[in-house]
C-alpha cells in the first residue's frame, strides 16, 4: 500500500506537484492514510478551531460545533446543519438574460436564457463562488451531497465521530 509524506499530499491537493510525480500517485494503489493527512492539512489552514469532519467543497467543510454538525466556509461563515442545503443560506446571482450570459459566453455559444439559467452561489462572508448551477428556469435548488457521517466514521474509518 502506498504512503506519502504530508508535504507531498499538500502539494498534490494544491495542484503544485509536478506531473511526473502526480501521475504515479494517480496510477498507483491509493494511500490508506490519505483522509487523515488531508484533514490535518486543511485543519491547519482554516482560521477557526472547530474540528473538520468532512470537506464538501473547495471552501466548505462539515465541522463539529458543540453538539451540532454544520457547514462552514474557510472564511468563517457558518451556513447551518449539514443535513440542510447550504445553498439556501448562501447568496445567489442568476444569469438569465443575454447580457449577463454574454460576459461568460460571448457570441453564439451561450445558452438560451428562456431554456436555461446559470445560478451562481456565493458565500455571504467572503463572496467566493461556491457552486454554479446550469438548470432550466424553475428547477429546484440542487442539494448536492448529504453524507452518511455516522456510517462513514464508524463503519469505514473505524473511528469515533
Amino acid at each position: 500500500m502506498a504512503s506519502y509524506p504530508k508535504d507531498v499530499i499538500r502539494d498534490l491537493i494544491d495542484g503544485k506537484l509536478p506531473w511526473q510525480t502526480t501521475k504515479p500517485i494517480m496510477s498507483d494503489f491509493k494511500d490508506e492514510r490519505r483522509f487523515e493527512i488531508y484533514l490535518e492539512i486543511l485543519q491547519e489552514r482554516v482560521p477557526w478551531k472547530e474540528r473538520i469532519l468532512l470537506p464538501v467543497g473547495e471552501h466548505l467543510y462539515i465541522v463539529e460545533k458543540g453538539a451540532a454538525r454544520i457547514v462552514k466556509c474557510d472564511c468563517g461563515h457558518e451556513f447551518g446543519p449539514y443535513t440542510e442545503n447550504w445553498k439556501l443560506e448562501a447568496l445567489v446571482y442568476v444569469r438569465d438574460d443575454e447580457r449577463s450570459l454574454d460576459e461568460i459566453y460571448p457570441g453564439a455559444r451561450k445558452c438560451d436564457p428562456g431554456w436555461m439559467e446559470l445560478r451562481e452561489y456565493y458565500c455571504p462572508g467572503c463572496k467566493a463562488q461556491l457552486e454554479v448551477e446550469a438548470v432550466t428556469p424553475g428547477y429546484p435548488v440542487v442539494f448536492d451531497f448529504v453524507p452518511d457521517l455516522e456510517g462513514f466514521y464508524r463503519d469505514w474509518l473505524k473511528k469515533p465521530l
Binding site: 467543497g57 473547495e58 461568460i104 445558452c111 431554456w115 467566493a128 463562488q129 454554479v132 448551477e133 446550469a134
Partner: peptide, 20 residues
C-alpha cells in the same frame, strides 16, 4: 441545443455546449 448539457463543480462554469 440551446442549453448546456454539463455542469461545473465547486464554482466552475459549464462548458459552452449549446449547439450552433
Amino acid at each position: 441545443d440551446k442549453v448546456f448539457d454539463n455542469q461545473g463543480m465547486c464554482g466552475g462554469y459549464p462548458g459552452p455546449t449549446a449547439k450552433f
